[in-house]
Design a binder for these strands. Structure first.
Lengths: 195, 195
DNA sequence: AATTTTTGCTAACGAACGTTAGGTTGTATA
DNA sequence: TATACAACCTAACGTTCGTTAGCAAAAATT
Protein backbone atom coordinates (compact mmCIF):
# COMPACT_ATOMS: atom_id res chain seq x y z
CA UNK A 1 0.00 0.00 0.00
CA UNK A 2 2.89 2.34 0.70
CA UNK A 3 4.22 2.20 -2.84
CA UNK A 4 0.71 2.51 -4.17
CA UNK A 5 0.00 5.56 -2.08
CA UNK A 6 3.23 7.19 -3.16
CA UNK A 7 2.25 6.84 -6.80
CA UNK A 8 -1.41 7.61 -6.28
CA UNK A 9 -2.53 10.46 -8.42
CA UNK A 10 0.74 10.71 -10.27
CA UNK A 11 -0.91 10.20 -13.63
CA UNK A 12 -3.46 12.80 -12.67
CA UNK A 13 -0.67 15.30 -12.05
CA UNK A 14 0.82 14.51 -15.45
CA UNK A 15 -2.52 15.23 -17.04
CA UNK A 16 -2.88 18.46 -15.06
CA UNK A 17 0.58 19.55 -16.20
CA UNK A 18 -0.20 18.95 -19.87
CA UNK A 19 -3.55 20.66 -19.46
CA UNK A 20 -1.81 23.69 -17.98
CA UNK A 21 0.46 23.90 -21.01
CA UNK A 22 -2.43 23.61 -23.43
CA UNK A 23 -4.69 26.03 -21.59
CA UNK A 24 -1.82 28.46 -21.67
CA UNK A 25 -1.11 28.27 -25.38
CA UNK A 26 -4.60 27.76 -26.80
CA UNK A 27 -6.81 29.05 -24.02
CA UNK A 28 -9.21 26.96 -21.94
CA UNK A 29 -12.23 27.24 -24.23
CA UNK A 30 -10.23 26.44 -27.35
CA UNK A 31 -8.58 23.39 -25.81
CA UNK A 32 -10.60 20.21 -26.29
CA UNK A 33 -10.36 17.07 -24.23
CA UNK A 34 -9.27 15.37 -27.43
CA UNK A 35 -6.39 17.85 -27.71
CA UNK A 36 -5.37 17.00 -24.19
CA UNK A 37 -5.73 13.28 -24.84
CA UNK A 38 -3.56 13.52 -27.93
CA UNK A 39 -0.88 15.34 -25.95
CA UNK A 40 -1.01 12.52 -23.40
CA UNK A 41 -1.02 9.94 -26.18
CA UNK A 42 -4.18 8.26 -24.94
CA UNK A 43 -7.86 8.35 -25.94
CA UNK A 44 -10.07 11.21 -24.77
CA UNK A 45 -12.35 8.91 -22.81
CA UNK A 46 -9.38 7.55 -20.89
CA UNK A 47 -8.82 10.91 -19.28
CA UNK A 48 -11.95 10.35 -17.23
CA UNK A 49 -10.33 7.50 -15.34
CA UNK A 50 -8.25 10.21 -13.68
CA UNK A 51 -10.30 13.37 -13.63
CA UNK A 52 -13.95 14.22 -13.12
CA UNK A 53 -14.29 16.97 -15.71
CA UNK A 54 -12.50 19.52 -17.83
CA UNK A 55 -13.38 22.24 -15.38
CA UNK A 56 -11.83 20.30 -12.51
CA UNK A 57 -8.51 20.84 -14.24
CA UNK A 58 -9.01 24.58 -14.53
CA UNK A 59 -10.29 24.74 -10.97
CA UNK A 60 -7.21 22.93 -9.71
CA UNK A 61 -4.80 25.23 -11.49
CA UNK A 62 -6.51 28.46 -10.46
CA UNK A 63 -7.01 27.63 -6.79
CA UNK A 64 -3.64 26.00 -6.29
CA UNK A 65 -2.02 29.16 -7.64
CA UNK A 66 -4.17 31.31 -5.40
CA UNK A 67 -3.03 29.32 -2.38
CA UNK A 68 0.59 29.65 -3.44
CA UNK A 69 0.33 33.41 -3.82
CA UNK A 70 -1.20 33.75 -0.37
CA UNK A 71 1.38 31.50 1.25
CA UNK A 72 4.19 33.52 -0.34
CA UNK A 73 2.81 36.77 1.02
CA UNK A 74 2.36 35.34 4.47
CA UNK A 75 5.97 34.29 4.52
CA UNK A 76 7.25 37.58 3.12
CA UNK A 77 5.24 39.82 5.44
CA UNK A 78 7.27 41.89 7.92
CA UNK A 79 5.01 44.56 9.44
CA UNK A 80 7.89 46.17 11.30
CA UNK A 81 9.63 47.29 8.09
CA UNK A 82 9.09 50.52 6.16
CA UNK A 83 6.42 50.62 3.47
CA UNK A 84 9.14 50.72 0.83
CA UNK A 85 10.77 47.56 2.16
CA UNK A 86 7.45 45.84 2.69
CA UNK A 87 6.47 46.61 -0.87
CA UNK A 88 9.74 45.34 -2.23
CA UNK A 89 9.42 42.10 -0.29
CA UNK A 90 5.86 41.62 -1.41
CA UNK A 91 6.81 42.21 -5.04
CA UNK A 92 9.72 39.79 -4.90
CA UNK A 93 7.54 37.13 -3.29
CA UNK A 94 4.87 37.60 -5.93
CA UNK A 95 7.36 37.45 -8.77
CA UNK A 96 8.91 34.28 -7.40
CA UNK A 97 5.57 32.52 -7.48
CA UNK A 98 5.10 33.51 -11.11
CA UNK A 99 8.55 32.47 -12.25
CA UNK A 100 8.19 29.20 -10.39
CA UNK A 101 5.46 28.11 -12.82
CA UNK A 102 4.89 30.44 -15.73
CA UNK A 103 2.39 28.17 -17.47
CA UNK A 104 0.17 27.88 -14.41
CA UNK A 105 0.50 31.62 -13.88
CA UNK A 106 -0.65 32.31 -17.41
CA UNK A 107 -3.73 30.15 -16.88
CA UNK A 108 -4.32 31.71 -13.47
CA UNK A 109 -4.28 35.22 -14.91
CA UNK A 110 -6.17 34.64 -18.13
CA UNK A 111 -8.51 31.69 -17.86
CA UNK A 112 -10.19 32.03 -14.47
CA UNK A 113 -13.22 33.65 -16.04
CA UNK A 114 -14.17 30.28 -17.52
CA UNK A 115 -14.88 28.87 -14.08
CA UNK A 116 -18.56 28.31 -13.46
CA UNK A 117 -20.55 30.62 -11.22
CA UNK A 118 -19.73 29.34 -7.74
CA UNK A 119 -15.98 28.79 -8.04
CA UNK A 120 -15.83 32.01 -10.03
CA UNK A 121 -17.30 34.00 -7.15
CA UNK A 122 -14.93 32.36 -4.70
CA UNK A 123 -11.99 33.05 -6.96
CA UNK A 124 -12.86 36.72 -7.26
CA UNK A 125 -13.14 36.98 -3.50
CA UNK A 126 -9.67 35.53 -3.04
CA UNK A 127 -8.31 37.82 -5.69
CA UNK A 128 -9.73 40.89 -3.96
CA UNK A 129 -8.32 39.77 -0.64
CA UNK A 130 -4.92 39.30 -2.19
CA UNK A 131 -4.96 42.68 -3.88
CA UNK A 132 -5.87 44.22 -0.54
CA UNK A 133 -2.48 43.19 0.86
CA UNK A 134 -0.68 45.39 -1.68
CA UNK A 135 -3.29 48.11 -1.43
CA UNK A 136 -2.68 48.33 2.32
CA UNK A 137 1.07 48.67 1.92
CA UNK A 138 0.67 51.40 -0.70
CA UNK A 139 -1.91 53.25 1.39
CA UNK A 140 0.31 53.10 4.47
CA UNK A 141 3.29 54.38 2.47
CA UNK A 142 1.29 57.34 1.21
CA UNK A 143 -0.12 58.04 4.67
CA UNK A 144 3.39 58.31 6.04
CA UNK A 145 4.49 60.37 3.02
CA UNK A 146 6.94 57.67 2.09
CA UNK A 147 5.23 57.45 -1.27
CA UNK A 148 3.85 60.31 -3.28
CA UNK A 149 0.12 60.53 -2.75
CA UNK A 150 -2.00 59.36 -5.65
CA UNK A 151 -4.83 56.96 -6.28
CA UNK A 152 -4.16 53.71 -4.43
CA UNK A 153 -6.44 51.90 -6.81
CA UNK A 154 -4.66 53.12 -9.89
CA UNK A 155 -1.25 52.37 -8.41
CA UNK A 156 -2.23 48.88 -7.29
CA UNK A 157 -3.51 47.94 -10.73
CA UNK A 158 -0.44 49.35 -12.43
CA UNK A 159 1.79 47.45 -10.04
CA UNK A 160 -0.04 44.19 -10.63
CA UNK A 161 0.00 44.56 -14.36
CA UNK A 162 3.73 45.20 -14.27
CA UNK A 163 4.30 42.07 -12.20
CA UNK A 164 1.81 39.85 -13.97
CA UNK A 165 3.26 40.31 -17.41
CA UNK A 166 6.43 38.51 -16.38
CA UNK A 167 5.11 35.09 -17.28
CA UNK A 168 5.10 36.13 -20.94
CA UNK A 169 8.86 36.44 -21.17
CA UNK A 170 10.54 34.81 -18.19
CA UNK A 171 12.86 31.91 -18.95
CA UNK A 172 14.50 29.87 -16.20
CA UNK A 173 17.71 29.73 -18.21
CA UNK A 174 17.66 33.50 -18.70
CA UNK A 175 20.17 35.91 -17.24
CA UNK A 176 17.98 37.23 -14.43
CA UNK A 177 16.92 35.38 -11.31
CA UNK A 178 13.35 35.81 -10.03
CA UNK A 179 14.79 37.78 -7.14
CA UNK A 180 16.57 40.17 -9.49
CA UNK A 181 13.45 40.61 -11.58
CA UNK A 182 11.45 41.42 -8.49
CA UNK A 183 14.02 43.99 -7.34
CA UNK A 184 14.09 45.55 -10.79
CA UNK A 185 10.34 45.96 -10.88
CA UNK A 186 10.42 47.40 -7.39
CA UNK A 187 13.05 49.89 -8.40
CA UNK A 188 11.25 50.93 -11.57
CA UNK A 189 7.98 51.40 -9.74
CA UNK A 190 9.40 53.04 -6.61
CA UNK A 191 12.15 55.24 -8.07
CA UNK A 192 11.11 55.50 -11.70
CA UNK A 193 13.08 55.63 -14.91
CA UNK A 194 14.87 58.84 -13.95
CA UNK A 195 16.44 57.97 -10.62
CA UNK B 1 -27.40 55.91 -54.11
CA UNK B 2 -26.08 58.42 -51.63
CA UNK B 3 -28.41 57.30 -48.86
CA UNK B 4 -27.71 53.69 -49.69
CA UNK B 5 -24.00 54.14 -49.59
CA UNK B 6 -24.22 56.02 -46.33
CA UNK B 7 -26.15 53.19 -44.72
CA UNK B 8 -24.21 50.46 -46.45
CA UNK B 9 -22.71 48.13 -43.92
CA UNK B 10 -24.40 49.77 -40.98
CA UNK B 11 -25.96 46.54 -39.85
CA UNK B 12 -22.59 44.92 -40.20
CA UNK B 13 -21.11 47.50 -37.86
CA UNK B 14 -23.86 46.82 -35.33
CA UNK B 15 -23.00 43.14 -35.44
CA UNK B 16 -19.31 43.92 -35.09
CA UNK B 17 -20.03 46.08 -32.06
CA UNK B 18 -22.05 43.38 -30.34
CA UNK B 19 -19.41 40.81 -31.22
CA UNK B 20 -16.76 43.02 -29.66
CA UNK B 21 -18.74 43.16 -26.42
CA UNK B 22 -19.24 39.41 -26.35
CA UNK B 23 -15.67 38.56 -27.28
CA UNK B 24 -14.61 40.82 -24.47
CA UNK B 25 -16.76 39.28 -21.76
CA UNK B 26 -16.78 35.63 -22.78
CA UNK B 27 -13.71 35.38 -24.96
CA UNK B 28 -13.66 34.62 -28.68
CA UNK B 29 -13.60 30.83 -28.43
CA UNK B 30 -16.37 30.71 -25.84
CA UNK B 31 -18.64 33.01 -27.83
CA UNK B 32 -20.85 31.15 -30.29
CA UNK B 33 -22.51 32.59 -33.33
CA UNK B 34 -25.79 31.70 -31.65
CA UNK B 35 -24.78 33.84 -28.67
CA UNK B 36 -24.11 36.70 -31.04
CA UNK B 37 -27.37 36.13 -32.89
CA UNK B 38 -29.34 36.14 -29.66
CA UNK B 39 -27.71 39.43 -28.67
CA UNK B 40 -28.75 40.84 -32.04
CA UNK B 41 -32.22 39.31 -31.65
CA UNK B 42 -32.00 37.46 -34.95
CA UNK B 43 -31.27 33.87 -35.98
CA UNK B 44 -27.68 32.65 -36.19
CA UNK B 45 -27.90 31.93 -39.90
CA UNK B 46 -29.04 35.50 -40.56
CA UNK B 47 -25.68 36.81 -39.44
CA UNK B 48 -24.19 35.41 -42.61
CA UNK B 49 -26.12 37.87 -44.74
CA UNK B 50 -23.75 40.47 -43.32
CA UNK B 51 -20.50 38.73 -42.52
CA UNK B 52 -18.41 36.01 -44.10
CA UNK B 53 -17.29 34.20 -40.98
CA UNK B 54 -16.77 34.41 -37.26
CA UNK B 55 -13.09 35.02 -37.76
CA UNK B 56 -13.80 37.97 -40.03
CA UNK B 57 -15.22 39.70 -36.98
CA UNK B 58 -12.13 39.05 -34.90
CA UNK B 59 -9.90 40.04 -37.78
CA UNK B 60 -11.75 43.31 -38.20
CA UNK B 61 -11.46 44.24 -34.54
CA UNK B 62 -7.78 43.36 -34.21
CA UNK B 63 -6.55 45.06 -37.36
CA UNK B 64 -8.71 48.14 -37.02
CA UNK B 65 -7.26 48.65 -33.53
CA UNK B 66 -3.74 48.10 -34.84
CA UNK B 67 -4.30 50.80 -37.45
CA UNK B 68 -5.66 53.17 -34.82
CA UNK B 69 -2.67 52.66 -32.55
CA UNK B 70 -0.26 53.37 -35.38
CA UNK B 71 -2.15 56.46 -36.51
CA UNK B 72 -2.13 57.82 -32.96
CA UNK B 73 1.64 57.39 -32.69
CA UNK B 74 2.24 59.01 -36.03
CA UNK B 75 0.29 62.05 -34.92
CA UNK B 76 1.91 62.22 -31.50
CA UNK B 77 5.48 61.85 -32.73
CA UNK B 78 7.75 64.87 -32.24
CA UNK B 79 11.36 63.84 -32.82
CA UNK B 80 12.68 67.24 -31.76
CA UNK B 81 11.52 66.80 -28.14
CA UNK B 82 13.42 65.19 -25.29
CA UNK B 83 13.05 61.47 -24.70
CA UNK B 84 11.03 62.19 -21.59
CA UNK B 85 8.56 64.35 -23.50
CA UNK B 86 8.44 61.96 -26.42
CA UNK B 87 7.67 59.12 -24.06
CA UNK B 88 4.97 61.06 -22.31
CA UNK B 89 3.33 61.96 -25.61
CA UNK B 90 3.51 58.40 -26.85
CA UNK B 91 1.96 57.11 -23.63
CA UNK B 92 -0.87 59.63 -23.70
CA UNK B 93 -1.60 58.83 -27.34
CA UNK B 94 -1.66 55.10 -26.58
CA UNK B 95 -3.91 55.54 -23.57
CA UNK B 96 -6.34 57.66 -25.57
CA UNK B 97 -6.78 54.90 -28.12
CA UNK B 98 -7.57 52.43 -25.35
CA UNK B 99 -10.03 54.63 -23.52
CA UNK B 100 -11.72 55.45 -26.80
CA UNK B 101 -12.92 51.85 -27.11
CA UNK B 102 -12.23 49.68 -24.10
CA UNK B 103 -14.15 46.68 -25.44
CA UNK B 104 -12.24 46.60 -28.70
CA UNK B 105 -9.01 47.10 -26.77
CA UNK B 106 -9.77 44.13 -24.56
CA UNK B 107 -10.32 41.95 -27.62
CA UNK B 108 -7.24 43.37 -29.29
CA UNK B 109 -5.06 42.54 -26.31
CA UNK B 110 -6.50 39.14 -25.39
CA UNK B 111 -8.07 37.43 -28.37
CA UNK B 112 -5.64 37.98 -31.24
CA UNK B 113 -4.11 34.55 -30.71
CA UNK B 114 -7.28 32.99 -32.09
CA UNK B 115 -6.57 34.41 -35.53
CA UNK B 116 -5.58 31.74 -38.04
CA UNK B 117 -2.00 31.35 -39.15
CA UNK B 118 -1.64 34.03 -41.83
CA UNK B 119 -3.40 36.95 -40.15
CA UNK B 120 -1.76 35.88 -36.92
CA UNK B 121 1.71 36.25 -38.40
CA UNK B 122 0.78 39.63 -39.86
CA UNK B 123 -0.64 40.75 -36.54
CA UNK B 124 2.49 39.80 -34.66
CA UNK B 125 4.61 41.70 -37.16
CA UNK B 126 2.55 44.83 -36.66
CA UNK B 127 2.75 44.39 -32.92
CA UNK B 128 6.52 44.15 -33.00
CA UNK B 129 6.75 47.23 -35.18
CA UNK B 130 4.58 49.16 -32.80
CA UNK B 131 6.54 48.09 -29.76
CA UNK B 132 9.70 49.20 -31.54
CA UNK B 133 8.47 52.80 -31.44
CA UNK B 134 8.51 52.78 -27.65
CA UNK B 135 11.64 50.72 -27.50
CA UNK B 136 13.45 53.35 -29.58
CA UNK B 137 12.37 56.22 -27.33
CA UNK B 138 13.49 54.34 -24.23
CA UNK B 139 16.81 53.36 -25.78
CA UNK B 140 17.47 56.95 -26.87
CA UNK B 141 16.65 58.22 -23.40
CA UNK B 142 19.08 55.80 -21.83
CA UNK B 143 21.75 56.60 -24.40
CA UNK B 144 21.54 60.28 -23.50
CA UNK B 145 21.46 59.40 -19.78
CA UNK B 146 18.02 60.94 -19.53
CA UNK B 147 16.78 57.62 -18.22
CA UNK B 148 18.59 55.30 -15.91
CA UNK B 149 20.18 52.53 -17.92
CA UNK B 150 18.49 49.16 -17.65
CA UNK B 151 17.09 46.51 -19.95
CA UNK B 152 15.09 48.19 -22.72
CA UNK B 153 13.18 45.00 -23.25
CA UNK B 154 12.15 44.70 -19.65
CA UNK B 155 11.18 48.35 -19.43
CA UNK B 156 9.16 48.25 -22.63
CA UNK B 157 7.15 45.26 -21.49
CA UNK B 158 6.53 46.78 -18.08
CA UNK B 159 5.41 50.02 -19.69
CA UNK B 160 3.03 48.25 -22.04
CA UNK B 161 1.55 46.14 -19.30
CA UNK B 162 0.95 49.25 -17.21
CA UNK B 163 -0.81 50.96 -20.11
CA UNK B 164 -2.69 47.96 -21.39
CA UNK B 165 -4.42 47.18 -18.12
CA UNK B 166 -6.40 50.40 -18.32
CA UNK B 167 -9.24 48.88 -20.30
CA UNK B 168 -10.11 46.78 -17.27
CA UNK B 169 -11.15 49.73 -15.12
CA UNK B 170 -11.57 52.83 -17.27
CA UNK B 171 -15.04 54.38 -17.30
CA UNK B 172 -15.89 57.33 -19.52
CA UNK B 173 -17.97 58.84 -16.71
CA UNK B 174 -15.10 58.41 -14.25
CA UNK B 175 -13.20 61.27 -12.66
CA UNK B 176 -10.11 61.03 -14.85
CA UNK B 177 -9.80 61.97 -18.49
CA UNK B 178 -7.72 59.76 -20.79
CA UNK B 179 -5.17 62.56 -20.93
CA UNK B 180 -4.89 62.63 -17.14
CA UNK B 181 -4.54 58.86 -16.98
CA UNK B 182 -1.78 58.96 -19.55
CA UNK B 183 0.08 61.67 -17.61
CA UNK B 184 -0.31 59.72 -14.40
CA UNK B 185 1.16 56.58 -15.88
CA UNK B 186 3.99 58.59 -17.37
CA UNK B 187 4.72 60.14 -14.00
CA UNK B 188 4.62 56.84 -12.17
CA UNK B 189 6.92 55.18 -14.68
CA UNK B 190 9.30 58.10 -15.16
CA UNK B 191 9.56 59.47 -11.63
CA UNK B 192 8.35 56.54 -9.54
CA UNK B 193 6.31 56.32 -6.40
CA UNK B 194 8.80 58.28 -4.34
CA UNK B 195 9.23 61.51 -6.28
C1' DA C 1 -44.40 50.53 -61.32
C1' DA C 2 -40.45 47.59 -61.83
C1' DT C 3 -36.10 46.56 -59.96
C1' DT C 4 -32.54 45.56 -56.97
C1' DT C 5 -30.73 45.30 -52.35
C1' DT C 6 -31.09 44.52 -47.66
C1' DT C 7 -32.52 41.77 -44.02
C1' DG C 8 -34.24 38.01 -42.20
C1' DC C 9 -36.27 33.24 -41.96
C1' DT C 10 -36.48 27.71 -41.66
C1' DA C 11 -34.15 23.61 -42.24
C1' DA C 12 -30.34 21.25 -42.20
C1' DC C 13 -25.27 19.79 -43.01
C1' DG C 14 -21.13 17.46 -41.09
C1' DA C 15 -17.94 18.08 -37.60
C1' DA C 16 -16.52 18.58 -33.04
C1' DC C 17 -17.74 18.91 -28.30
C1' DG C 18 -17.71 16.90 -23.15
C1' DT C 19 -18.83 12.90 -21.24
C1' DT C 20 -20.63 7.96 -20.03
C1' DA C 21 -20.92 2.85 -20.23
C1' DG C 22 -18.86 -1.30 -20.18
C1' DG C 23 -15.02 -4.09 -20.96
C1' DT C 24 -9.85 -5.64 -21.13
C1' DT C 25 -5.16 -5.70 -19.63
C1' DG C 26 -1.24 -5.57 -16.76
C1' DT C 27 0.71 -4.68 -12.32
C1' DA C 28 0.89 -4.55 -7.35
C1' DT C 29 -1.01 -6.08 -3.06
C1' DA C 30 -2.95 -9.64 0.08
C1' DT D 1 -2.08 -17.71 -6.40
C1' DA D 2 -6.14 -14.94 -5.88
C1' DT D 3 -7.63 -10.26 -5.73
C1' DA D 4 -7.83 -5.49 -6.28
C1' DC D 5 -7.06 -1.57 -8.84
C1' DA D 6 -4.97 1.56 -11.93
C1' DA D 7 -4.85 2.55 -16.75
C1' DC D 8 -6.67 2.46 -21.02
C1' DC D 9 -9.67 0.86 -24.73
C1' DT D 10 -13.92 0.98 -28.22
C1' DA D 11 -18.34 2.61 -29.01
C1' DA D 12 -21.47 5.77 -28.53
C1' DC D 13 -24.70 9.38 -26.26
C1' DG D 14 -26.85 13.91 -26.83
C1' DT D 15 -25.51 18.60 -27.63
C1' DT D 16 -23.51 22.38 -29.69
C1' DC D 17 -20.60 24.20 -33.18
C1' DG D 18 -19.84 27.22 -37.64
C1' DT D 19 -21.88 27.45 -41.74
C1' DT D 20 -24.76 26.70 -46.25
C1' DA D 21 -28.98 26.47 -49.20
C1' DG D 22 -33.02 28.26 -50.56
C1' DC D 23 -36.66 31.25 -49.88
C1' DA D 24 -39.64 35.43 -48.42
C1' DA D 25 -40.69 40.04 -47.05
C1' DA D 26 -39.58 44.73 -46.94
C1' DA D 27 -37.15 48.67 -48.15
C1' DA D 28 -34.64 51.51 -51.26
C1' DT D 29 -33.49 52.63 -55.94
C1' DT D 30 -34.46 53.15 -60.80
Amino acid sequence: MITAKAKKGERKREIAAKATELFRTKGYAATSMRDLAKAMEIEAASLYSHIKSKEELLHGICFRMADTFFAAQKEAASPELSATEQLENAIVAHVKVITDDVAASAVFFNEWRHLSADPLAEFKKLRDEYEAIFRAILAAGMQESEFRTQSVNFTTLTLFSAMNVIYTWYQPEGSKTPEEIGREISRLLIYGLKD
